[in-house]
Amino acid sequence: MFKKDISPGAKSKVKSSVQRAIRTKITETYPLLVPHIDEILPKKEQLDLVKLPDRVSLYALGSTPLFWQHMDDPLLPHLTLVHKYPTCFPLLRIDRGAIRFVLSGASLMAPGLTSPGGRLPKQNDKDGVGPEEYRYGNEELDEGEVVVIEAEGKENACLVGVLRMGTKEMKEKKKGVVVEGGHYLGDGLWKMGLD
């Protein structure tokens, strides 16, 4: 979505009632963030709405980008936020070979997740439940859910996006687009300065 470098558009203050609505929406979509919500979005702080090209709006606190949204799609976290609270989002992992494609803005394809280096939920039945495997969860994820993609051998996440295909389907088909038009490391949104 942000393959090209973008410059922030008009910045406006968010009404406090809207701010409250956003807050509840975030806690609904990302229940794991509830313990940290006061830290991410303090009640008294003034949230800013920054308009970006292609009908994307970005919510920011001062110069810290927090969440972005394309039209009325779900609120997606900015990667800096993901890096701060890596365990609060549904995680998947891609193998090493896929990283360079993701970082150059390609759609994420299923083989990157189903290969030995990738991780999907519910794989621990056969691998045995190690603490390292546990973080990828036990629940199958459905189409339309927000996922954070991290990479094999890396600590930090490299992509945030909406699933185009449920994880169950992925395991069966092992083909096709999984995440399209997400926010990846080094894209326009990442590089954009907010001051």
Partner: peptide, 11 residues
């Protein structure tokens, strides 16, 4: 390159 250093190799 502003990425986390572990991703520098792709930059």
């Amino acid at each position: 390159c502003s990425l986390p250093p572990e991703y520098c190799e792709f930059g």
